[in-house]
Nucleic acid binder design. Sequence first.
DNA 1: TCGTAGTTACGTACCGCGTACGTAGTGCGC
DNA 2: GCGCACTACGTACGCGGTACGTAACTACGA
Lengths: 237, 237
Amino acid sequence: MAGRAAEPEVIWARRERTGRGPRPAYTRADIAAAAVRIADAEGLDAVSMRRVAAELGCGTMSLYNYVARKEDLHELMVDAVGGEHELWEPGGDWRADMLRVAHQTRALMHRHPWLPRLMSPVYGFSPNSLRFVEHCLACLDPLPVSYGTRMELIAMLNAVVTMYVGNELATAERTRALPWSEEQENAVRAAYVGGRLASGAYPRLAAGITENPGPVDMEEVFERMLGRVLDGFDPGD
Amino acid sequence: MAGRAAEPEVIWARRERTGRGPRPAYTRADIAAAAVRIADAEGLDAVSMRRVAAELGCGTMSLYNYVARKEDLHELMVDAVGGEHELWEPGGDWRADMLRVAHQTRALMHRHPWLPRLMSPVYGFSPNSLRFVEHCLACLDPLPVSYGTRMELIAMLNAVVTMYVGNELATAERTRALPWSEEQENAVRAAYVGGRLASGAYPRLAAGITENPGPVDMEEVFERMLGRVLDGFDPGD
DNA sequence: TCGTAGTTACGTACCGCGTACGTAGTGCGC
DNA sequence: GCGCACTACGTACGCGGTACGTAACTACGA
């Protein structure tokens, strides 16, 4: 009957400073930066409330004055690195501009390998996310399709980039905690898959591997993928 | 100096029964089924080693005879529901067949809302995953492009479907643990975004919302997306 | 045939996690 | 200048993954 109201909390909807009481010792930016520093250096799993508090030099529970849940800390992190996106004046060639966006996103994720894991649709409303989408829309001004379609383009391009780079980085991020190296893990997996393919149960898969046994050029694949996504939206004038 | 070897462990590479010692009380299928049951009913976060062991009726640590890490349990889950994919004799129309694959995947994810979260590239080697990819390749037999390109098509389609359905389900899965409803959360977010848009800082975003204020038909969007992905690979003969 | 080695089963224990709660201190607004 | 809303943070709870030790059990080599 008593208890608390249990109203939905969206961190961006609450102003950072309320006026009353002692001035907070840290800003949201400070906290986000500390968390990002830890995640970059030690992986996302090292980002705990205690660890971030220690990094800041304050008590663990003090963090809860700034964020209601750990998840909000993640939102702060995503927004913070989203601010690293360089926004330029679109040049009129929407295809070139969107390619540049995609490459920038990929670079961002390489700088912060934990980012793909935190890329969630529900985080799409942070200040820097809004800015980013607005910038994409500006790049798409010359594209003669509805806003709805433009949004779909942006969503799809981001999804594909996130998935692609997530794949690129997954093993690396994963094996960070494990007692063996990425190469060892890959070797064991390759040996296992090789054995399965040799069983003859997957003829096409085997043929695919045979066709191109060497390591794939990931840059090339990425480029091709982007091209295909954009093709799907090109009215072809 | 002593310690253990610390060799990479891939669960699929080790046979289920070794012959020596008492016969195991459960099969991998039993364990996977128990975990899936819990995840379906109570969400992925309810799937803990203790909880799964309780569901099976055995001691917690007994599970570690079957899986080396909790992550392996996740692999078992993904593989188990992957077995629900219905594989048919491809009919010669690769486009229709791949659309059917995509719709089936989406249905699978709706049945198991935790699946998108576990869809990781490193899980791509389980028996049922291999079967699934082989089946997709069979569907693509009529498509006159290299195996490499076919693999890229499969990867991209799966990525897009996973992202799309993940978005669809994210809030639902997320708010399961929270003390307020999905509708309340959405309302608060919408109010916040409305306020930001009213600030005038994001004119194109605002225009986009104005253009289509009603709720979007997600089915339609899904269909359009699939079409675009496939278009990108259609040589057009 | 019979050890014995490789397994299974599982209780106990450790450490780290997110976070509820209570208390003390602080400074703006009335 | 009083009071209240806020900050700071120590303590504690319950739960998580899992290392480790022990006891029972069974297929295999001698």
